[in-house]
Measured scan of single mutants.
Amino acid sequence: RLIESLSQMLSMGFSDEGGWLTRLLQTKNYDIGAALDTIQ
């Protein structure tokens, strides 16, 4: 599930440099909407 969510976020133009996006998705239970809300 992480790989699916991460690949979708990467395709939106986000980077996972340093693993920050992986950690964010894990804390949000791989919910892309919740991750995007946090980023904004």
Rank of each mutant, 00 (worst) to 15 (best):
Q8H: 11
A34W: 07
S15P: 02
T22L: 07
Y30K: 03
Q8F: 13
L10R: 10
I3M: 14
T27P: 02
D31S: 09
I3G: 11
A34L: 12
G18M: 08
T38V: 14
L21A: 00
M9G: 00
F14V: 02
M9R: 01
Y30I: 04
L21W: 03
L2E: 07
L25V: 01
I32M: 06
L24P: 00
I3Y: 14
T38E: 14
L2T: 02
L24Q: 00
E4M: 12
I32W: 08
T38L: 11
E17Q: 10
I39H: 03
L25R: 01
L24G: 00
F14T: 02
M12W: 10
G18C: 14
T27R: 15
G19F: 08
G13L: 08
T22E: 03
L25I: 04
K28F: 14
E4H: 12
R1V: 10
K28H: 15
L25Q: 00
E4Q: 12
S5N: 04
S7F: 13
L10E: 07
D37S: 13
L2G: 05
L6M: 07
Q26S: 09
S11A: 15
M9L: 13
L36M: 09
L6H: 01
Q8K: 14
M9N: 01
E4F: 09
L10W: 04
I3N: 12
L25T: 00
E17V: 12
D31N: 09
L2Q: 05
S11N: 12
I3H: 14
T22H: 05
T22G: 03
M12F: 08
D37Y: 11
G33H: 13
Q26G: 07
S15D: 15
W20H: 03
A35K: 02
F14S: 00
F14H: 03
Q8N: 08
G13I: 09
D31M: 07
S15Q: 10
R23N: 09
G19H: 06
T27L: 15
E17W: 11
N29T: 03
K28N: 12
K28V: 15
G13K: 02
L25S: 00
A34N: 07
R1Q: 11
L10F: 11
M12S: 02
N29F: 10
S15K: 09
M9T: 01
D16S: 02
I39N: 01
D37H: 13
T22D: 01
S11L: 12
Q40P: 05
L24E: 00
S15T: 15
L24W: 06
N29K: 09
L24I: 07
A34H: 05
L10Q: 08
D37L: 13
D31E: 07
S7G: 11
Y30D: 03
S11F: 07
A34T: 05
Q40Y: 15
L6S: 00
G19P: 02
M12Q: 06
L25F: 04
E17G: 06
L25A: 00
R23Q: 10
A35R: 01
G33Y: 14
R1W: 12
L24D: 00
L2Y: 10
L25N: 01
L10A: 09
Q26M: 14
L36K: 02
I3Q: 15
T38P: 01
Y30F: 12
T27V: 13
D37R: 13
A35L: 08
N29S: 07
T38Q: 13
A34C: 09
S7D: 09
L36G: 03
S11K: 13
G13F: 07
G13D: 01
L25D: 01
D16A: 06
F14M: 04
Q8R: 13
I39E: 00
E4W: 11
I39S: 02
E17D: 12
L24Y: 01
G33E: 14
T27I: 15
S11D: 10
M12N: 04
D16Y: 03
M9D: 00
L21G: 00
G18N: 11
I39M: 06
I32A: 04
D31V: 08
G13T: 03
G33D: 14
Q40F: 15
L2M: 07
E17F: 11
T27M: 15
Y30V: 04
Q26Y: 09
L2N: 04
E4L: 12
S11W: 07
L36S: 01
Y30N: 07
G18T: 08
G13A: 04
S5P: 06
G13Q: 05
L6Q: 01
D16R: 05
I32G: 02
S15L: 09
K28I: 12
Y30T: 03
G18D: 10
D31I: 07
Q26W: 09
G13Y: 09
K28G: 05
W20A: 05
R1E: 10
S7I: 12
T27Y: 13
Q8P: 01
S15V: 11
Q26E: 12
T22Q: 06
K28Y: 13
W20D: 02
F14D: 02
D37T: 11
D37E: 15
S5A: 15
Y30S: 04
W20V: 04
L21E: 01
G19D: 05
L6V: 06
D31A: 06
S15M: 09
R23P: 00
Y30A: 05
S11P: 01
E17L: 10
Q8M: 13
M12T: 04
T22P: 01
N29Y: 09
Q26L: 12
Q40M: 15
A34K: 10
T22M: 08
S5V: 14
R1M: 12
Y30E: 02
